[in-house]
Structures are given as C-alpha cells and as structure tokens.
Design a protein around this nucleic acid. Structure first.
Lengths: 159, 159
DNA sequence: ACCTATTATCTTAGTAATGAGATATATAAT
DNA sequence: ATTATATATCTCATTACTAAGATAATAGGT
C-alpha cells in the first residue's frame, strides 16, 4: 500500500462537515440580524429598545423581580442592568423597591404607566414578530425551533 | 351571515401562530448568542474581533475590495468600516490602496502580515465553528440552513 | 462576637459601534 | 460648461453597552 505523497497546500481545504457548519453560521447570523432589525423597528415606534422591552416584558409577565433575576433573564452585565433600569425609571415605566429580606437587593417593578404601556404594545409587538417570521409556515417554524433549541443548548452548555 | 360580536378583552391572548413565532424568536436569539460567544472566544486568542475577522476573511478570499464593498458584505455603517479598517491598518494586517478609476474610492487589501495571519487562523476558526455547531449532525445542520435561509431572506426582503 | 467568603448592586472607564453631516469626486442632463 | 444628483469615504458626537473594581450586606463557620 502506497501513501500519497503529501502535496504542499497553501490553505488546508475544509472538509464537508466544516463547510456545512460555516454555511449554517452565515445563515444563522443573517437571519438573526434581519429578524432583529424588523422587530426593533417595531419597538422604535414606541421609543424603546429591544433590551428595554425585554426587561419590561419580564416584569409584565412575572411581576416584580430582583435586579439580578432580570439580569440573568435578559443576559446583560450587572452594570448594564443598573443602567437600563435607571433609564426606564427616568421615563416612569419602572421603579425600584426595597427587598424586605435582603437590604442589598432591589426589586424592579413596572409602574402603572409601564403596565399600561405593556398592555398596549405587547400584543402589537408579538404580532410584529409573527409577521417577521412569516417567511416560514408555522410547521416549519416549529421544526426550526427544535433544531435551534438543540443547537443553542449544546453551544451554551459546552462553554 | 352574522358577525361575532366583539367581546372586550384587556390583553388579547396570542393565537397559536403568534406563540409559535415567539418561541422561534427566543431560541433564534439564544442560539445565535451562544454560538457567537463561542466563536468570538476562539478569535480572542488571536486578539481580533469577529467583525475584524469578517473583514479579513472577505479580503482573504476575494482579494482587495473597495471599502464600500466590504461594508455591504459585513453589514456595518460607513463610519464603522472606516474605523475598523483604521484599526486593522494600525496593526499592520490591512492597507488602503488608491482606486485608479475613481479617486473617491479606496481599496482595502491584506498586507503580507495579514495574509499570513489568515492562512494560520482561518482553518482553526473554521474548526471552532464546526465544533460550536456540533450539537446538530451535519444533516440537521443542512436542514436548519435551508429553513434559516428562507427565514432570513423573507425578513430582509420585506423590510 | 469575629472572620471569611459570597452575593447584589452601583460606579467608572473604556469599547465598538451607529448616524448625521462634511468633503471630495463622479456622472448625467441640459 | 454648468448644474444637479449621486456616490465614497471620513469626521464627530452619541449610544449602549462591557469589564473590573468599589461598596455594602448577608451567611456560615469558629
């Protein structure tokens, strides 16, 4: 048995599995960007960012949460959550409340104004997301969800 | 034919299609974030950001490109491409060249140092992406690619 | 009570961008 | 030629963060 002599190559050609992964990487990035641009454009009409909406949505659906809980939910840094809650507080949508059992901790809670904003815009925004996703049928969306959940969990877990 | 009388509702409950779309939105964001964190961590070892890698990869595979071409390819603002090419130039990986036919325009091109950096790290980074995607089999990755391409194109197109 | 480690939030400085507008050049119409 | 419009890049101010460290409070062990 003879081995093929190593022919020098400038750049190692990628194998098929790598090529497949690179394609997925590209379409994943582009899809996320395109969807993100559309959904953020929807929120811009109301003068809030996607991240701000994430905070208010969490408070809207779960009630008051400790800053740290919000932080873990929307995945920003500790400095970031302080900054974001400050901004929402200035605009009157959110307020801080003492935590009776832990004086280091603060709750973030929707004000009445924040609550009524969310009642108005959450359904609208959900519809905008549905619209942004309308390139796929609901059945295809469920397929994509299964695959992306598996992909995301594996990628996050092995960190 | 009778129309159903409008029953007042505080918050319109989402229909099934909206719920499906919201789930996809969540897993899409999370998957992209998890994959992005892993691939950027790989590049950090070489001291470059994902965006910088994107520029160098484009130049590596296509040769010198006008700044505007690079900009459209990696999707940053016009100010952003100037800033990024400046930084890569400072570090000696990229240089600007005059465009003989249009004196407003500038090419960005890899220097010899940039070329050799890419020869070294491109295959490594491709392998890191393959690894980050390994939660799905190649066949599943191809499925996901088909769906995400359709999703992304539809979302970008209807902007 | 005292020490240690941990946790929760806030502060500060720095970064990677964006967006609006400036400048220079090019192209097309008159 | 002149004018208008479009294009390519750059400049500058601002935004939305992150990372590291400061401060303060809690919890557990001794």
């Amino acid at each position: 048995m003879t081995t093929t002599p190593a022919r020098p190559r400038t750049v190692q050609p990628s194998d098929a599995a790598t090529t497949t992964a690179l394609k997925l990487f590209t379409v994943l990035s582009r899809a996320q960007r395109a969807i993100g641009e559309r959904t953020q454009a929807d929120l811009e009409r109301h003068g809030i960012s996607g991240t701000e909406f994430g905070i208010m949505e969490a408070l809207f659906h779960k009630g008051p949460l400790l800053l740290g809980e919000v932080q873990r939910k929307i995945l920003v840094s500790s400095g970031g959550i302080t900054f974001l809650v400050d901004k929402l507080t200035e605009r009157g949508y959110v307020e801080r409340r003492m935590c009776p059992s832990d004086r280091r901790a603060r709750y973030a809670a929707l004000t009445r104004k924040g609550e009524s904003l969310m009642k108005e815009i959450f359904p609208q925004h959900a519809a905008a997301i549905r619209e942004a996703m309308s390139g796929l049928t609901p059945a295809e969306q469920r397929e994509a969800t299964v695959l992306l959940r598996r992909l995301g969990l594996a990628a996050a877990g092995e960190g």
